[in-house]
Structures are given as structure tokens and as C-alpha cells.
């Protein structure tokens, strides 16, 4: 099909819009970097070396040790993914290979609904129900890393379940039926045929789960207790990078505000890194790397 002169002009307009959509990423990166520069220049290594996090408007008056907060983010993310990855994969396997068809349909709908619940509602449930329960049954104060891990795990489970499921569904049926015809049991087929071929998609699902867990804000800020300290146990209070921004951005000025942008930049770079990782997995495993990530 050739392009008429009207088409030519329309194409330029559309290209302009496409370019604007792309430019947004550049714009975000630009503003985060430019607002981070004052803190990076004035504080530099102090962001890692300072003993504690007591930020002030003027660099000289405060301390800016971000390490405990970074550790908080990492531990909550790792804990949540360690819980949610097996459960999400189990969910996907259940839907594809264990549940009778009507049960699978209802179950999938339920997981989709779970994915649609706003994070602030998860956080509120964690705050009102889960944290007091932990304090009562296990150990006070309840508002802890443990509560955060549980709530974030519940939140990212649907993401992992839905994407892994489309990876499992992409394994050719003929292969699976062939194995069944050889008399292999359900679990043997899963373990030796289905799971290895769906590896790329399951990995993608897990990485996207990590991305959601690192970036989660509301649920974490509501249940983690938010004390800036390297946690000694999972029942200790902890503060994550996202929670730190949500708590302090409203009143921060000067170097303090800029230091918060540094932590935002760190989150942004992590997100970009994880996106590149997903792209790499998809390239290596084009058959079913993406699972359901591309609409």
C-alpha cells in the first residue's frame, strides 16, 4: 500500500506523538537526575557512609546514611519473592494441569480480581488485620518486615501466577500428550517436560514480580513500621526506599529533597535494569520468554 500526501502528513503527526511517548522516559530520567545532582555533589559517599538517616535542609546539619533503607528494600523484596514465586507458580500449575476446567476458570478470575485490588487496600488490610495479628500471635510490634513481606507477597502473587500460566500454556500440547501416552505421571511430565520448556516465561514472571515488589509503596509504608535501622530479625520494624520517599517528600527541602530524588533515581535505574533483564530473557528464549507481558 502506498502513502498519499495526506497520509504523509498524518504519518508525521503520528511519529511526533510516538516520539513524545518515548521522550517521556527521557524526561523522567532528566528530572530525576537533575534534582539528584545537588545531593550527589554535596554528599557523595556520605550517602553510604553516614551513620544514620537524619536529613536536614542544609547538608552540613544532617546525616544521610541511606544504607539501612536500601537493605530494608532488598530484604522485603527478597522475602516477598521467595514466598510469592513458588506460590504463584503453584497457582499457575494448578490452573493448567490440576484443576477441573470449571474450577480453573473461576480460580483464574479470582486471581485476576486479586491483581485488581489497589495497593492501598492491601496496605490497609495489613495495617488493620495482619499487623495486630502478628503482634498478638508471634511477636510485637507487628508492624514489621514480616508483615511487609506477607502483604507484598500477596500483592505480587497474581502477577507471577498470570504470567507463568501463559508460559505453561505455551508449551506445545502435542509434547505433553506424547509424554502422557508414554505412561509418565502428571508430576513427572511437569518436572521433566513442561517446567523446563516454560523456564523463560517463569523467569520473566519472577523478574516482573521483583520489579513490582521493589517499587511497591503504599502497602509497605502502611505495615512495615518505618524505623530506619538495619533489621535484626524479620519481626523488626524496617523502612524501604519507597516508603522513605512517601513519608518525607511532603515536607523535605534543599539537600533532604535532593537526597530523596537520589533514592528515586536508584529505584528508576533498578526498574530499567530489570526491564533490560526481561528483554534479554526474551531474546534468549524467544519461544515463550514473554509469556503474557505483551498485551
Amino acid at each position: 500500500m502506498s502513502l498519499s500526501s495526506v497520509d504523509g502528513r498524518v504519518l508525521w503527526l503520528l511519529r511526533l506523538m510516538g516520539a513524545a511517548s518515548c521522550a517521556l522516559v527521557v524526561l523522567i530520567l532528566f528530572f530525576l537526575i537533575s534534582d539528584s545532582i545537588p545531593a550527589l555533589r554535596e554528599l557523595g559517599p556520605r550517602l553510604v557512609h553516614d551513620e544514620s538517616w537524619h536529613p536536614r535542609e542544609l547538608a552540613a546539619n544532617g546525616t544521610y546514611g541511606m544504607l539501612p533503607i536500601v537493605i530494608g528494600s532488598l530484604t522485603v523484596t527478597l522475602g516477598a519473592i521467595a514466598l510469592a514465586a513458588p506460590l504463584g507458580l503453584g497457582s499457575a500449575i494448578f490452573c493448567q494441569f490440576y484443576a477441573p476446567r470449571p474450577v480453573a476458570t473461576v480460580y483464574r478470575r479470582l486471581v485476576e480480581l486479586l491483581a485488581g485490588i489497589p495497593s492501598v487496600v492491601y496496605g490497609f488490610w495489613g495495617l488493620a488485620i495482619l499487623a495486630p495479628l502478628i503482634a498478638e500471635v508471634l511477636r510485637p510490634p507487628g508492624h514489621s518486615m514480616f508483615a511487609g513481606i506477607l502483604v507484598v507477597a500477596v500483592m505480587i502473587l497474581p502477577t507471577i501466577a498470570l504470567i507463568s500460566e501463559s508460559a505453561l500454556a505455551a508449551v506445545p500440547r502435542a509434547t505433553v500428550m506424547g509424554a502422557a501416552a508414554l505412561g509418565m505421571g502428571r508430576w513427572s511430565i511437569l518436572r521433566s517436560i513442561v517446567l523446563p520448556s516454560a523456564r523463560g516465561g517463569i523467569l520473566t514472571a519472577t523478574i516482573l514480580g521483583v520489579a513490582r515488589a521493589v517499587g511497591e509503596t503504599m502497602a509497605v509504608v502502611m505495615v512495615c513500621g518505618n524505623i530506619v535501622k538495619v533489621p535484626g530479625s524479620v519481626f523488626d520494624s524496617v523502612r524501604t526506599l519507597t516508603a522513605n520517599i512517601a513519608l518525607e517528600m511532603g515536607y523535605s527541602l534543599g539537600t533532604h529533597r535532593s537526597a530523596l530524588f537520589v533514592s528515586g533515581l536508584l529505584l528508576l535505574l533498578t526498574a530499567i535494569g530489570l526491564t533490560l533483564l526481561v528483554a534479554w530473557v526474551e531474546r534468549r528464549d524467544p519461544l515463550n520468554g514473554g509469556g503474557g507481558t505483551r498485551g
Binding site: 517521556l24 522516559v25 523522567i28 530525576l32 517499587g215 519507597t242 517528600m249 528508576l268 530489570l274
Partner: peptide, 13 residues
């Protein structure tokens, strides 16, 4: 990349 940016970072931006 845009889809992977955490919402709090959109807030900062």
C-alpha cells in the same frame, strides 16, 4: 521501561 517505572517515581517526577 515506562511500564516498569514504580509509581512513587512517577510521583517524584
Amino acid at each position: 521501561v515506562l511500564a516498569a517505572v514504580p509509581s512513587i517515581v512517577f510521583g517524584l517526577f
